[in-house]
């Protein structure tokens, strides 16, 4: 278990992380998600002991490690650059951490082979890192980080350099290894798909402050503020003041009227509304139902399994909707967008 309390880091006058507190339960996979410069790497490096916190404490399995140098913390870490030692073979790379952790020569031999098995690379022990592909290097880097059974595994954007297909493969693979070993893991990324698909819990960071700490579905379906709503996932945004119309709360936005979910009716407040593209249906005819907006198709992006359709509404703002693959509509068509009131996110 990892516990961060009131972690703050200043670089000179620049505040990189401000009063961040969170904890990771034993065996959980937690992701620090945020744009570049949000402080996620600083946080990760502080846990590793590579960056000294300005304030705050870091407890690892109940022990205060805040003042300890990296080599005394028993942490496993995979870096974005892989950081493999280029002058050592794969086997020597993995043995290095074991040696520094005091494993005997016999134990090292056994564990290196086990680690190579774990990452499906039993035949690559004698290769030098530069003879391996990017994905293979990342797997060796992971094997090296896990070989000595660290108290926590820190992953610093390990999938960033990989191409899309490999990246998607690696996600599942990484998850299965993490579950198999039950190692507590903190993953840092700017990629929301990484975060949503892999984590037990996601911490969204911006400008050095935690925006929301919650399971992925909660982050996506009930974002706690506008930043989270806009950073995680795509959506169409409306703004306006909440008024009561009949028995339902609505927001008037130019000529549009948007009905809100039943429970969310902060009367008289100025709110931002978000609708996810998969919650919007495209109809060819406008029907007299709640939350039906008409517009003109501006762009159709066919993504294979689905299509992303950009529709220009009558007030010249754009809305984004998902349809089934290769929809039977064309750019310039007049369409109606419909979405259930219950799917509107009110912030």
């Amino acid at each position: 278990m990892l516990e961060i309390t009131n972690f703050t880091k200043y670089y000179g006058d620049l505040c990189a992380v401000n009063d961040l507190s969170f904890q990771i339960e034993e065996g959980n996979f937690v992701t620090l998600l945020g744009p570049s410069g949000c402080g996620k790497s600083t946080t990760l490096h502080s846990i590793a002991g590579l960056v000294e916190p300005t304030e705050g404490r870091i407890h690892l399995r109940g022990k205060d490690v805040t003042e300890l140098p990296p080599e005394k913390r028993n942490i496993g870490m995979a870096f974005q650059s892989t950081a493999l030692f280029p002058h050592m073979s794969v086997r020597e790379n993995i043995a290095y951490g074991l040696k520094m952790h005091g494993y005997s020569s016999d134990e090292r031999t056994t564990r290196v082979e086990e680690s190579l098995e774990l990452v499906d690379m039993p035949d690559h022990g004698d290769h030098k890192p530069d003879e391996l592909s990017g994905g293979q290097q990342q797997r060796v880097s992971l094997a090296r980080a896990l070989a000595y059974e660290p108290d926590i595994l820190l992953l610093d954007e390990p999938l960033t350099g990989l191409d899309r297909v490999l990246r998607e493969d690696m996600r599942g693979w990484l998850n299965s290894i993490q579950r198999e070993l039950g190692v507590t893991t903190l993953y840092v990324t700017h990629d929301q798909e990484d975060a949503l698909s892999m984590s037990d819990k996601v911490i969204v960071l911006n400008n050095g402050e935690a925006q929301q700490i919650a399971p992925p579905e909660e982050i996506y379906e009930s974002p706690s503020n506008e930043f989270v709503a806009e950073f995680v996932g795509k959506s169409t945004k409306f703004q306006g003041e909440v008024t009561q119309e009949g028995n339902r709360a609505v927001v008037h936005n130019d000529d549009k009227t948007i009905t809100l979910p039943k429970e969310d009716s902060p009367q008289g407040e100025h709110v931002s509304l978000y609708v996810r593209p998969e919650d919007i249906e495209i109809k060819t005819k406008e029907a007299n139902v709640e939350n039906s907006l008409s517009g003109t198709v501006l762009e159709i992006a066919n993504l294979g399994n689905r299509a992303e359709v950009t529709v220009e509404l009558t007030d010249e703002t754009n809305a984004l909707a998902h349809t089934a693959r290769f929809p039977n509509i064309e750019v310039g068509d007049t369409v109606a967008l419909q979405f259930p009131a219950e799917k509107v996110i009110v912030l």
Partner: peptide
């Protein structure tokens, strides 16, 4: 620089890092 950070996190102190990583490289 991450190569040197990696060495530290893997359990090597400053001297061991100098001897086993920095110097050979």
């Amino acid at each position: 620089p991450e190569t040197l950070s990696a060495s530290r996190v893997l359990g090597a102190g400053k001297w061991n890092t100098l001897r086993n990583v920095t110097f050979p490289l």
